[in-house]
Computed example of a mutant assay.
Amino acid sequence: MRKITTSISALAVAGLIAVACNSSIPEGEATVSTEDVDISDLKVAYIVTDSVINNFVYFKEQSAAIAEKGKKYEGELTNRARGFEQEVQNFQNTANNMTVNQQRAKQEELVAKERNLVTYRENIMQELSADENKLYNEVYDMIQEYLNTYAAENDLEMILSYTRGGGVWYANESLDITDSVVKGINEDYEKGEAPAETAPAASEEESTEGE
């Protein structure tokens, strides 16, 4: 009898999620009840996804590395832009001393350099964006793998993702396993071998071509 009740409870939760996703609900905070509920009765739990990701050591380490790369590229871009501006200014100051052909040749050179500068900026933005997307995919895969093990070890039939504006608008706090998951996934990460670092979408040499 308990098994039947458990299955019905799980289906009921899934049904509520479907209704929440398809219904028009006024904006506001999701309601969280503090009433005690025994997880073993429902075999359902949830995590606050953003909290798990933001407190995952691997995510914080790799995010910091991407941010550092961004600062480095920003400095390089700033230096190139300043050099280009100075070159334009020098041309404007000396153009009267040049022949028409010399002026035309210099203008074409400056146009090409400006185009290369824009291309360089676009390349580094794309690279950083790709690094960030790759990191999120890695982190989601790692969390998914951990939750599969967590669910099996704790006899859970379902682990929901609780995010503001997501499919779950009500959840009892006693079903929140966020802290437990954060603690466990970080312990596993620190004990095991670190995943391969997020590789850039394009090599630094490729993104800096056309200087």
Rank of each mutant, 00 (worst) to 15 (best):
L42E: 07
K43C: 07
A45Y: 02
I47Q: 03
V48Y: 00
V48A: 02
D50S: 11
V52A: 01
V52P: 04
I53E: 01
N54S: 12
N55C: 00
F56N: 03
V57D: 11
V57C: 02
Y58A: 03
F59G: 04
F59I: 03
K60I: 04
K60M: 09
A64H: 01
A64E: 10
A65H: 00
A65F: 04
I66M: 03
I66Y: 02
A67Y: 00
E68V: 10
K69M: 14
K69Y: 04
G70N: 07
G70S: 08
K71T: 08
K71M: 05
K71W: 01
Y73Q: 09
E74K: 12
E76G: 10
E76M: 10
L77G: 05
L77N: 09
L77T: 09
T78F: 13
N79A: 14
R80M: 11
A81M: 12
A81D: 10
G83I: 04
G83D: 09
E85M: 05
E85F: 06
E85R: 07
Q86K: 08
V88K: 03
Q89C: 05
Q89I: 13
F91D: 13
Q92M: 11
Q92D: 01
Q92T: 15
N93A: 14
N93S: 15
A95G: 07
A95M: 10
N96E: 11
N96K: 08
N97R: 02
M98R: 07
T99I: 03
V100N: 10
V100F: 04
N101V: 13
N101Q: 14
N101W: 00
Q103C: 08
Q103S: 04
R104F: 08
A105R: 08
A105P: 01
A105Y: 02
Q107S: 07
E108S: 10
L110C: 03
V111N: 01
V111C: 00
E114M: 11
R115I: 14
R115H: 08
N116Q: 14
N116L: 05
N116E: 10
L117F: 11
L117H: 04
L117Q: 06
V118A: 06
Y120H: 15
Y120R: 12
R121W: 05
N123R: 14
N123K: 14
I124R: 06
M125R: 11
L128E: 00
S129P: 01
A130E: 06
D131T: 08
E132W: 02
E132Y: 10
N133R: 10
K134R: 11
L135N: 00
L135T: 08
L135H: 02
L135D: 05
Y136I: 15
Y136F: 15
N137D: 13
E138V: 15
V139R: 00
V139E: 01
Y140F: 13
Y140W: 06
Y140Q: 15
D141G: 10
D141Y: 00
D141H: 02
D141S: 14
M142P: 03
I143K: 04
Q144P: 01
Q144D: 12
E145Y: 02
Y146K: 07
Y146P: 00
L147S: 02
N148G: 12
T149Q: 12
Y150Q: 04
A151D: 03
A151P: 15
A152P: 03
E153G: 01
N154F: 08
